[in-house]
C-alpha cells in the first residue's frame, strides 16, 4: 500500500491505495464519489472521464497513485458556486442531451474540456471530440446540439427536439 494525496473537487484528500488501485476505484469506493461511472474495461466508453490537472482523462485507465499531487475534478465538482448547473450541464437538460444518465458524467466532463480548448466548436469538431464517449440512448443528436448551445451558438436550425 502506498500513501496518496491529491486535491479532488477543491478539497485535499489522502489515503492508502494499492499499486493497482485505479483512479476510478479510488474516487468511487474510497471517496464515495460515485458520479464517475465505469462502463467498460477497454478504455473505450468514456463514462469515467474526469479532469486531472485540467485535462480530460479516463479515470479507469490511470492508477490512483499516478494522480499524486494532482488537481482532480469529477462530475460532483462541476456546477456553479451556488450549487446550480453550469452552462454545459444546463444545455444538456434544455436540449434533452441525456436519457438514462449513465454516460452523462463522462459526456459533461468531455464537453467541458472541449469548450475549454475550442470555445465555438463546429458540429464536426464536437462529433470528433466525442469519439471516446459512447452513449447508447440519445443517438448523440441532442448531445451535439447541447454542446453547440452551451458554446453560445444558435441551434434553432438544428432539427427540433
Amino acid at each position: 500500500m502506498t500513501q496518496v494525496a491529491m486535491t479532488v473537487n477543491g478539497k485535499s484528500v489522502s489515503g492508502e491505495v494499492e499499486g493497482r488501485t485505479l483512479l476510478s476505484d479510488y474516487l468511487r469506493e474510497d471517496l464515495r464519489l460515485t458520479g464517475t461511472h465505469v462502463g467498460c474495461d477497454t478504455s473505450q466508453c468514456g463514462a469515467c472521464v474526469v479532469h486531472v490537472d485540467g485535462k480530460a482523462v479516463k479515470a479507469c485507465t490511470m492508477f490512483a497513485a499516478e494522480a499524486e499531487g494532482a488537481q482532480v475534478t469529477t462530475i460532483e465538482g462541476m456546477g456553479t458556486a451556488d450549487g446550480g448547473l453550469t452552462a454545459v450541464q444546463q444545455a444538456f437538460q434544455d436540449h434533452h442531451g441525456l436519457q438514462c444518465g449513465f454516460c452523462t458524467p463522462g459526456m459533461v466532463m468531455t464537453a467541458a474540456a472541449l469548450l475549454e480548448e475550442t470555445p465555438k466548436p463546429t458540429e464536426a469538431e464536437i462529433r470528433d471530440y466525442l469519439e471516446g464517449n459512447i452513449c447508447r440512448c440519445t443517438g448523440y443528436h441532442n448531445i451535439v446540439k447541447a454542446i453547440m448551445a452551451a458554446s453560445g451558438q444558435d441551434v434553432s436550425a438544428v432539427a427540433a427536439e
Binding site: 458520479g35 464517475t36 462541476m78 448547473l85 437538460q93
Partner: peptide, 9 residues
C-alpha cells in the same frame, strides 16, 4: 436530469 448531470444518480 439534475441528479444525473451532477453525479448524484
Amino acid at each position: 436530469d439534475v441528479r444525473f448531470l451532477t453525479g448524484r444518480g
